[in-house]
Design a protein around this nucleic acid. Structure first.
Length: 331
DNA sequence: AACAACCTCAACCGCTCCCCA
DNA sequence: GTGGGGAGCGGTTGAGGTTGT
């Protein structure tokens, strides 16, 4: 068909986004909401193609994004979902609301793939009866693990879908929070966005002080939030990056990690964060955008239906104990 | 200290999907 | 029913950072 590119190559800027561009984009989306990306470069004057604007927003500026190290639980979750869904990063990302598909994809490619490969080499030399290729685990073990994986996913889904029946057959504790985003009464991810924006602000402040006020050309984590807001200097009192707080989470703490109600411990800690919170809350975009796909996903997909049906028919089985232990072995 | 090798991740590219006229 | 255009997705790239020699 020979479809023309979404933007002509001439005059379109590429490469890292500058803080100034971020500000322009955020301000625009704050005002108009996400969507209609085609119009964004035209209306903002940004020399970026619409795609680039969308990506910058969804992968970096969008509210509710958690950055920094993945927790062990998140790793496990990704591994399970990857086993079930394949490289459908967007689908996987929908189960980890605070992570972007790009982030998950990168993490898979750079960390988890290696980790699993290393793990698998431990089983080398035992492949038999056609159980071949890169899957060098003992067949029985592999099958058992796969079964466990599927079962865990079923259970998690089952739990998520039977929220109105708290004492129903699905009461697998560690996964209570995994699907908490599906709950109709979940809090908005609004607050998480505050972290995100404040983090940008913090980066901006740090770089400003470091460089004596000169604007770094391509500081990814920097943004001057004075645009479009009643600006108040933060006096550099921002606490440590919110994302970093997740690094030392205990497994128990993870339960609250995905619980949006409690995911913003830092928000009230400083003036600047309050400011950014206000900045965020003054807009409606976050409610609109925070997780539109999640809303759309509420109806069961084929896979989820299948998992749900299976889970229901099987009821509580004996794999529960094994499941967690087995997955723990991976690490 | 200098250089090379390796790693990470933001951003780009190209394709498919989906909606609408 | 069909084609065009926008949005979304997954794979890939490359600049910048880190680690090893």
């Amino acid at each position: 068909m020979g479809r023309p590119p979404c933007c002509d190559k001439i005059g379109v800027k590429k490469g890292p986004w500058t803080p100034e561009e971020d500000i322009i984009l955020v301000s625009y989306i704050q005002e108009h909401g996400p969507g209609n990306w085609r119009a964004v470069p035209t209306n903002t004057g940004l020399l970026r193609c619409s795609k680039s604007c969308r990506l910058r927003w969804t992968n970096y500026l969008r509210p509710g994004i958690k950055r920094g190290n993945f927790t062990e639980q998140e790793e496990k979750m990704i591994i399970h979902l990857q086993a079930l869904l394949g490289n459908r990063w967007a689908a996987i990302a929908s189960y980890l609301p605070q992570r972007t598909d790009n982030d998950i994809k990168n993490y898979w490619n750079t960390h988890l793939k290696k980790k699993l490969k290393k793990l698998q080499t431990g089983f080398d030399g035992h492949t038999k009866d056609g159980f071949s290729g890169s899957q060098t685990m003992l067949k029985g073990q592999w099958e058992r693990r796969l079964q466990t994986d599927i079962h865990m996913a079923k259970r998690a889904l089952c739990e998520a879908l039977s929220l109105e029946k708290p004492n129903s057959l699905c009461d697998l504790k560690p996964y209570d929070s995994y699907f908490s985003w599906m709950r109709p009464n979940q809090a908005s991810t609004y607050a998480s966005s505050t972290e995100n924006i404040s983090r940008l602000l913090e980066g901006w402040m740090r770089n400003s002080s470091k460089s004596g006020g000169s604007t770094p050309e391509t500081t990814q984590n920097s943004i001057n939030m004075t645009v479009g807001t009643d600006s108040t200097s933060s006096q550099g009192t921002t606490s440590a990056c919110a994302a970093n707080h997740t690094d030392d989470l205990s497994p128990d703490a993870f339960e609250s990690l995905l619980d949006f109600d409690s995911s913003t411990p830092d928000v009230s800690q400083s003036t600047s964060l309050d400011e950014t919170a206000n900045f965020a809350q003054e807009t409606s975009l976050l409610q609109d955008e925070s997780k539109p796909k999640l809303e759309a996903q509420a109806p069961l997909s084929m896979l989820e239906k299948w998992l749900f049906d299976e889970g229901m028919t099987q009821g509580q089985e004996d794999l529960i104990g094994i499941s967690l232990d087995e997955t723990s072995e991976l690490f």
